[in-house]
Design a binder for these strands. Structure first.
Lengths: 226, 226
DNA sequence: GTCTATAATCTGATAGAC
DNA sequence: GTCTATCAGATTATAGAC
């Protein structure tokens, strides 16, 4: 009891501040090089903290890696939870795509750590994928099938749709470098990114037979006899 | 002269066979761990060749890595070239999505090496992205804009559409492990994969206002007053 | 061309003075 | 709690016998 009660606040603050610094640096370095390719010395340098202290706060590189993934999972799941904010398919899909795009914008490193972890065979995320995510996917698929049954959207395979949304939104984080190069070396501005998000929403809505707020030309297939 | 003319065929065959073995192994190991995370000893073991011989055929790890990327680029580009096989948007998009999905199925390791290279800042692919790919993207965007002008497809931002196709098709290679886990630990069968490809084609066509061969319910937006 | 042995460097982790 | 010094093992690459 006394140990916990009497712990000096200042020391706790230092600890938490340093841990936060290290976690942020680690996310960036793991995003850049993956678990095996990342050196703790790189993480220490990025965090501006001596390497020995990194090992003081996180016993092993793997412990640190798991902690980084845990933080990412939290934010990923909170984006995922927006899916059921609305009953209307258009609103639900729009909200979800937006949340995923915001995650990609705000946590690009986190997204890349995730991607690298999966590409390495998901040794750490395996449990999460097989339990929480699997359940999430099953429940969301059920919702989508209900929309189809009620005639609210076109008949599509729920998994194909959800994978498309995941892949496309995460692409803006994971392939940011490629997108920048193709955009003449300039990062997408906040404005461009918001527009792109809207364009994506329209594409996704169109893919299930809904057409959001397209004003211009017809959304129904034209007679395309060229 | 004599040097080249008299080179023994058998030795050349050995060289080419070993180089092919090493390249194949390297693609797999680089896909798993990225450039920095991959050890040449791992590559040698995977290829069933002594480590020293790997360095005999490829002077440095970086040389080998560049060579692996070069091979991937070739195949990537030949999938890309299918885009203009048809004038009709529906046929062009269908053919392209199929080609990309086949690439993901046949070269999953290559796809992952590419993804990791980009996530590492594209140090090697930078030139290719800024020249060949940029040109490709610009020309394909022009084609898509022409389709829109001619009223053949809905007005969409070409880049948003192409990125969606890239991201989604590559997802099936890069996130294969996740897809397997979500599929109860089973890899998608050839049949499932072909079906999924068709479902994707339908989603993509729908996203630009075309509706492929959907027989069932209406493709035009229903009155969705729930 | 093959492959064992080894050089030179890097990496994760810890000890121990402050 | 901080940080220099250092160890043990791994990693890239090469030398040199076969």
């Amino acid at each position: 009891m006394s140990a916990q009660a009497s712990t000096q606040p200042r020391k706790i603050e230092i600890r938490e501040a340093n841990q936060a610094l290290i976690l942020e640096a680690a996310e960036k370095i793991f995003a850049m090089n993956g678990f095996r390719g990342a050196a703790t010395s790189d993480i220490a340098r990025e965090a501006g903290i001596p390497k020995a202290n990194v090992h003081y706060y996180f016993k092993t590189k793997e412990d640190l890696y798991r902690e980084v993934l845990r933080h990412i999972l939290n934010d990923w799941m909170s984006a995922a939870s927006t899916f059921e904010a609305h009953n209307d398919p258009a609103e639900a899909l729009r909200t979800y795509v937006k949340a995923k795009m915001e995650f990609s914008r705000n946590r690009p490193y986190g997204s890349r750590v995730w991607a690298r972890e999966i590409m390495s065979g998901a040794p750490v995320l395996e449990d999460f994928l097989g339990t929480t995510l699997k359940t999430w996917l099953r429940e969301r698929s059920r919702i989508i099938r209900a929309w189809i049954r009620e005639g609210k959207i076109k008949p599509v395979e729920p998994q194909a749709l959800l994978y498309m949304i995941w892949a496309t939104t995460q692409h803006y984080a994971d392939f940011e470098r490629q997108i920048i190069i193709l955009n003449n070396g300039k990062k997408l501005s906040n404005r461009s990114y918001r527009q792109r998000t809207e364009q994506l929403v329209e594409l996704v809505l169109g893919s299930v037979g809904l057409n959001g707020g397209v004003k211009g030309k017809g959304q129904c297939p034209k007679d395309k006899s060229a």
